[in-house]
Design a protein around this nucleic acid. Structure first.
Lengths: 355, 355
DNA sequence: TTGTACGCGTTATCAA
DNA sequence: TTGATAACGCGTACAA
């Protein structure tokens, strides 16, 4: 065909109207007479013009229609977490009014390593950015984004000052669950926590380690549990997954003498793994040992168990972040939102059997 | 601070150099004397200038640094599939030389529903697009992208003519696995397939339904199995997940009399669910029933089983797609790649016990 | 090594 | 309802 793609001027010329009129036909910002419109559309069709070049349009408009989502992990790892997956769904809905798309980004840390062309976070045409889990490492990404003057929303993390944040009542929710376990009559309780720091090995959490937890979520859920069980032994998993939960469970159930009657896990995936470990150790759930989770996600393959857990509104979190982005882009005030988790009874926790 | 963000001209003026010199300092395309550079950098710092505006740069360069990834499902659903997750990782690496980011996009179908501002696939500033699973529905997205003259790569699907595609030897690989099962001595075999069509209900696959399978992957893997077991009953799962595998397994194992000695599942997740169903039915794997999978992914929570499966190079698929994108953008020829799956022995398949 | 001049393709504003 | 004009912010020949 042609050497060069047709532009709106070409279309206008072909349709014998001015470029601005042709533009208006595509944007719909101003009424256009029917005959003019169809002439322009016909011209566009004949030239193979499929609409305004997004690059030029975004320069002119000052908007790219792109919202960056910044993860601190390998993308693949991020999506192993069902909560993140749900959040992404919610976020997609949330930014829909913008007609915006989500650009997957990694934190600046890593990008700096190789000699890749550029850390895209600093060069991508973003209208706004959503940071997920702003726990230390994302700090750097945060400053990069702020320097660019791009609106930011933070999910599950603290970005300071006037930056809208979306999070949960992690501590209170986990305390509520611990209370439930306590009220069932459990006294010999073990805790299985989320990873305490990036890349930290799994293992029992001593006082020192407990004091040095950098991951907000991990710290808060542990605090909530501690409010009820200040002395319970806590084991930190290597990651929030079924397999790591199983590993943790094996350790927790290793010594028959000191075996807990209840295990409070800080995620549903961990709880699922702990249930597996319990089964493996010949323990029945919840008769011999109660197991509680956190998140309220559907754990694929856990049937017929129904976890006793705290449901967090994961999709809503994503949507709230999207709403906040929209608000900021419309120069309205974006509000921080703290969501409340709700207790969901399942069949994995019961009163301890008296012995 | 200032009412308007600083531009490169502002920086140039402040540094008392021409805009082009300032530009060159940031792009590095042309050597600049050290004193000039530092003057420019200092000026930039004092004005809070963080680098060229990506919107303007992309208009000028004709590149946005964004590669679209088009899914035909809910984004959340897509990432429930470990294979897709791995592919995304590979894709990320593959496009890294471009310094490009991945923009998550849904197929055009859905976007058309609501009165959302626009189907972003047609309006996003894409340098290239990757379609995943081009099975009918994505056709529309394909034409939209082609109309825009954007380079496209298709993973696991056929886009016709000269469009690079990345796929697997699905049929041959699945045939190889079926052969293995056959060579172990199994004769009473059941097949559990991937969903036959979008939104089709689970159920036994009769001749009609088998003839009308629209999803390429489903059809090919079934054909491969049929090459060895032409008469084996096939049950189509509702989705590729552990839970749906369990549902399928319950049906397959329902009738003790006609119970198969081996189940050939067309994904690892399904296989995992079938193993669960077998356990539930009091069957030992592999003593009472063999179960084989497909994909070779790590199924979280399947331990201590190690699936006997065909490993597909999922990450490599993503990377190959990325490479193809890079090639097309550099005006080189992008090649289609067909990857080969490899047999991986596990502990879930063995010779049938003679009765 | 630095500067001049121009255009990338649109769209907002305003006047007709 | 339409058209003329002027940016949007940058990169890159080309000349100096």
């Amino acid at each position: 065909m042609s050497a060069r793609r047709a532009t709106i001027s070409d279309v206008a010329r072909e349709a014998r109207v001015s470029p601005s009129t042709a533009s208006v036909v595509f944007s719909g910002k101003t009424p256009v007479s029917d005959v003019t419109r169809s002439r322009v559309l016909a011209a566009a069709a004949s030239l193979g013009y499929t609409g305004p070049d997004p690059r030029a349009a975004s320069l002119r408009r000052g908007r790219s229609g792109i919202v960056g989502v910044v993860f601190e992990e390998h993308l693949g790892t991020a999506f192993l977490d069902p909560v993140k997956t749900l959040m992404m769904d919610g976020l997609t809905e949330g930014v829909a009014p913008l007609g915006a798309g989500l650009l997957l980004l990694r934190d600046t840390h890593v990008a700096a390593e190789g000699n890749s062309p550029a850390p895209t976070l600093t060069t991508a045409p973003l209208d706004a950015a959503v940071l997920i889990g702003c726990s230390g490492r994302l700090r750097e990404s945060l400053t990069a984004v702020l320097a660019r003057g791009i609106p930011v929303v933070v999910i599950e993390g603290d970005a300071g000052d006037g930056i809208p944040r979306i999070d949960l009542d992690n501590r209170e929710a986990q305390r509520q669950m611990a209370s439930h376990v306590s009220s069932l009559g459990h006294r010999r309780v073990a805790i299985v926590t989320l990873p305490t720091n990036a890349d930290s090995p799994p293992g029992w959490v001593d006082a020192d380690r407990e004091a040095g937890i950098t991951v907000d979520v991990t710290r808060l859920r542990l605090s909530g549990t501690r409010d009820i069980f200040p002395e319970a032994p806590a084991y930190a998993a290597a990651a929030s997954s079924i397999d790591e939960g199983m590993n943790a469970g094996r350790v927790v159930f290793a010594d028959a003498a000191s075996r807990p009657t209840a295990v409070i896990a800080h995620s549903d995936l961990l709880a699922a793994g702990i249930i597996r470990a319990a089964e493996e150790a010949g323990l029945r759930v919840p008769e011999d040992v109660s197991v509680t989770g956190f998140d309220g996600v559907t754990v694929d393959g856990l049937a017929p168990y129904q976890l006793t857990t705290m449901r967090q509104p994961a999709t809503e979190k994503g949507r709230a972040a999207g709403d906040a982005v929209v608000a900021m882009l419309e120069e309205r005030d974006a509000v921080s939102v703290r969501f409340t988790c709700t207790f969901r009874a399942g069949n994995t926790a019961a009163a301890p059997t008296t012995d």
